[in-house]
Structure formats: structure tokens, C-alpha cells
Amino acid sequence: MGQPLVDRFARVHRDLRISLTDRCSLRCTYCMPEQGNEWLARQSILTLDEIVEVARVAAASGITTFRLTGGEPLLRTDIVEIVRRLAALESPAGPIEIAMTTNGIRLPEVLPDLVDAGLARLNISLDTIDRERFHALTRRDRLDDVLAGVRAAQLAGLRPLKINAVAMRGVNDGELADLVAFAIAHDAQMRFIEQMPLDAGHTWDRSTMVTREEILAALSERWALTPVPGRGGAPAEQWRLDDGPHVVGVIASVTAPFCGACDRMRLTADGQLRNCLFSIDEYDLLPVLRSEVAPSERAADVDRILRNCIAGKKAGHAIDDPSFLQPARGMNAIGG
């Protein structure tokens, strides 16, 4: 315990994405059905203490960033205390950075307390700023609430503030430049994500996906794009707009995968470790976390499972391989 988490391909893991719930206040068409969702059993959801127990072991082994995801993480009533407890941990490299991905709906209510607790970075998911399109896409009339969340984040001063949008053909591909302009107006960075095969209904169709090249072509009609070097293990490639201060990112998991530099692993809300977003294998921590053994023995078991998970990580997700199998879980149950 305490040694870096290094896989067979010499990738050192520094980022743990922690899903807090599979539930969400929206029903985005590319993520989950409007009705009939099979939610995780409440008794299987990790408690605050269990999350911290895993995080403490991960931090000791070199994880330096915890990103809180869902579902919608702000639906957890103990979200402020989760941030506070995790922010108090340290890795051998120093303090842990706490980030979050959210739909923004509850931000005006809880963001001041989250910042006070130690939240350092924020990503807000927003696929469209057109009211009718937002309602059709999310099946909820909550655009004003999300926009209020974006404004709250802008005023809170967390930087870089990022806005994420899944680019979809025939849905929002005509407003990509407008989304970038919206982000700039709110002192945020726009990031576009290629639609991935992670919907709960397994209806993903590659032909509906807007590719990296199409996204860049659309943006090039309004701005000159200059690549930003030094991407490292970050999922997004970045381009500077008109050689100015603003940048836009593209996460091209399908057409330009970045698996070779991946430093991330995931913890689902029900205690399953995953070494890849697209993995079909999971490593169950729940029996260990709920075993009646000494805390030191439990920590050693958590560390062992962490290392087994990393040891099983493949070179890449192989979406373009004919043998690729979509994960059984949808994105809301894996964690964004």
C-alpha cells in the first residue's frame, strides 16, 4: 500500500472519478429513458464513510484528483460533507483536488457551501441553450435553472469553469458556435464531446454522432483555431480562438481516442471499481467495505482490489473493433 497505481502499459493513475448516485433530475435522451429506469438499490449505494475509506486508500497510492459525478451528484443530501471530507485528504504529492460534473440545477443553492468545503473545479453539462430543444432533449423544462447554475458558477470564481455538451447530429449541431459564444460570455471554456455508446437503452448509432472533424469545421467558420500544446493526460484537446485568451475543447473518445495517456479509474455509486469507462469488467468493493474486520485490514483489501483493477486495464477501449461490446450499465450508473 502506498505505491503508485501503474498498469501494464506504464500509465500512472492520478484521477479517481467517484459516482455518488445513478439518479438525475433530467432525462437526457442519449443517457436514460424517461420512465422505467431500474435504479440501483438504495442499500447498495456507498455511504459517506465508505466513499472516504476508498478515497483515503486511493490518495495514499498517488491519486491527486477526485471528480464527483453521477447521475447528478448534487442530489446527494450529504454532498457538502462529502466534499469537505475528501478535500481534507492528502496524497504523497500534496492536497487532493476536488472537482465535480453537474447539470447545475442546484448550484445556486449549494455552491457557496461547496466552495467553502473545498470544491476547486466545476464542469456543467449543457447541450443546448435553445429552450424548446432543451425541453425535448432532457424531457424537463429546467433550462432557466441550469442557466442560473451557470451564472452562480461564474460568480463563484472557480476557474477554469467548463461547460460540456454532447454534439448530436440533427439536434444541436447547428448551434455549436453559439454554445462557444455563450461559454465565453460566462468566462467559461466550452468542451464538446463525441456521443459515445453509453446510453442505457443501447440505441447508440454512430451515424448520429458528430465527429471531432465536423465540430472543428463548424467552429472554423467563426474563429481561427490554433492547437494548444501540452495536453498530457487530459481528455480534451484544446484550440485557441483567434489567438486570443479563449479556448475550446473537444473530447473525441470515438474518432481520436486518448487511451495511451489515460490516468483515470472510476468508482460507481454502488462500490464497483472500473478501469475504463467502456469496461465490461468491474471489481466489487462493497463486501470488503462492509466486512467486520479491523480498519487496517479493510484498507489493505481495498488497496489490493484497486491494484487488481489497474492490472486488468487494457491498452484501449476498442470502440472501432468489431468485437467491441457496449457496457451493460448506462452512463448514469457508471458515472460521467
Rank of each mutant, 00 (worst) to 15 (best):
residue 14 R to A: 00
residue 283 Y to L: 03
residue 31 C to L: 03
residue 138 T to F: 02
residue 89 L to K: 01
residue 47 T to E: 05
residue 192 F to Q: 03
residue 335 G to P: 07
residue 219 L to H: 11
residue 225 L to E: 03
residue 48 L to A: 02
residue 252 A to Q: 08
residue 115 V to C: 11
residue 116 D to S: 11
residue 199 D to F: 06
residue 238 Q to L: 13
residue 75 L to K: 10
residue 334 I to F: 10
residue 110 V to D: 10
residue 325 L to H: 12
residue 58 A to S: 09
residue 1 M to F: 12
residue 299 A to C: 09
residue 55 A to E: 02
residue 318 A to R: 08
residue 257 P to T: 14
residue 126 L to H: 04
residue 328 A to N: 02
residue 39 W to K: 10
residue 37 N to I: 15
residue 330 G to P: 00
residue 249 G to S: 04
residue 75 L to R: 01
residue 19 S to N: 08
residue 189 Q to A: 10
residue 18 I to R: 01
residue 239 W to N: 09
residue 215 I to V: 15
residue 294 A to W: 11
residue 139 R to G: 09
residue 38 E to G: 14
residue 304 R to P: 02
residue 163 I to M: 12
residue 152 A to D: 11
residue 250 V to N: 00
residue 98 I to D: 10
residue 121 R to N: 10
residue 66 F to T: 04
residue 50 E to R: 01
residue 173 D to R: 10
residue 228 V to S: 07
residue 321 D to T: 11
residue 245 P to M: 03
residue 249 G to D: 00
residue 118 G to Y: 14
residue 252 A to N: 09
residue 11 R to G: 12
residue 319 I to H: 01
residue 168 M to C: 06
residue 159 R to H: 03
residue 26 L to I: 09
residue 226 T to K: 09
residue 319 I to L: 15
residue 245 P to R: 12
residue 266 R to H: 11
residue 243 D to Q: 09
residue 238 Q to H: 15
residue 192 F to D: 06
residue 298 R to D: 14
residue 110 V to P: 05
residue 105 I to P: 06
residue 20 L to H: 04
residue 87 A to L: 06
residue 273 L to P: 00
residue 42 R to G: 11
residue 101 T to D: 08
